Amino acid sequence: MPELPEVEIVRQSLDKKIKQKKVKKVIVRNRNLRTKIPLNFPRFLEGKKIIKVKRFSKYLIICLSNQSYCLLHLGMSGTIHLIYNRKKSLVTNTSFYSSPTLPKKHNHVEIVFDDLKIVYNDPRRFGFFEIVVNEHFLDKRLSKLGPEPFQSEFNLSYIYSFLKGKTKNIKNFLLDQNFVSGIGNIYASEILFLCKIKPDKKVSLLNKEDCKKIIFNSKKVLINAIKKGGSSIRDFKNTSGKSGNFQKNFNVYERKGLNCKRSGCNGIIKKKMISNRSSFFCNICQI
């Protein structure tokens, strides 16, 4: 599943390519995504200009000229492809994961502009499009999500009050979008490695220094991943021709059985299933 850095890369690509362009036509080939695409979705978008493309957590927010919004979530396997009318591109995917070129199957939605179109592809169909008629309803729609690690609201006081009296492990909380928005399985493992905290450690055992480390390293890992183009596990390029290479910097993720990279540590990276998700950690320096 794409996490915050991957979605941010898609946002940057889209904002650069479709901002200030008017939607000419919308083609919905399959309404049956996680939630059904509204019947009036084409009419809602057609004729509107894209003011900009924003993001919150793992949501893309397409801002329209009539002050309404199109909310898009990529789910587990959703990708957006840029297809130009008059030139062929070896790479169409705005993401760094899945196929670098447009697959022949599972192309559910096309949004057409004068010189290009964007195509939404999603084999598992866990992604979705939503119509949001104004800013009030957008704020309401996103209000249940926790703050992003970059926001000032994600602070020591917030973490302490949220975790007080809870019994779950810290890995599950980092994946809980009601607690903090945008962190997924890959980056949770990387964050906890830098914090020297085992993923299955109960939050009741965390002290203030642990919480400060979580705040600092959540920002650090995500910012670094965005700078390096997200985690292109399969090493594809995006439409600018650049490869995401954060995976070259993984300390623990998918490094089971390898030596710990931390200086002076003789530990071995272990893999453990936590709530049906793979967790990677050092058996020595994470406690």
Rank of each mutant, 00 (worst) to 15 (best):
N134D: 15
S68Y: 03
I118F: 02
N185H: 06
K87S: 09
N207F: 13
F173I: 07
L102I: 13
K219R: 15
F113Y: 08
S240F: 12
A188D: 05
Y97S: 10
D115V: 08
I50V: 08
Q20E: 14
H108Q: 03
Q286P: 03
E135W: 09
L82N: 04
N30F: 06
N32V: 07
K49R: 12
T167K: 14
F216P: 02
D122R: 05
H108V: 04
F236I: 12
I159T: 02
R125Y: 07
E130N: 14
V221L: 08
S65Y: 02
F44E: 01
S181D: 02
V28G: 00
H73I: 13
D122E: 14
L145D: 09
L194K: 09
N169F: 13
I131L: 12
K36Y: 10
V180S: 03
Q67G: 02
L60N: 00
L145E: 06
F96I: 14
S89Y: 09
N224D: 10
R29F: 14
C265N: 08
K104E: 15
S89T: 14
K220M: 10
K88F: 08
R34E: 04
N185G: 04
T239D: 08
L74H: 08
G127R: 00
I226L: 05
T35V: 15
K256N: 05
F162E: 12
V132Y: 07
I215L: 10
E46V: 11
V109M: 09
I18D: 01
K117G: 07
T92F: 03
R29V: 11
I183C: 10
H106K: 15
N259S: 14
F216N: 04
C265S: 07
G78W: 04
S157C: 13
K104N: 12
L90E: 06
R11P: 00
F150C: 11
N40Y: 08
S278E: 11
S275M: 13
S99M: 07
N224P: 02
Q12H: 11
K22H: 05
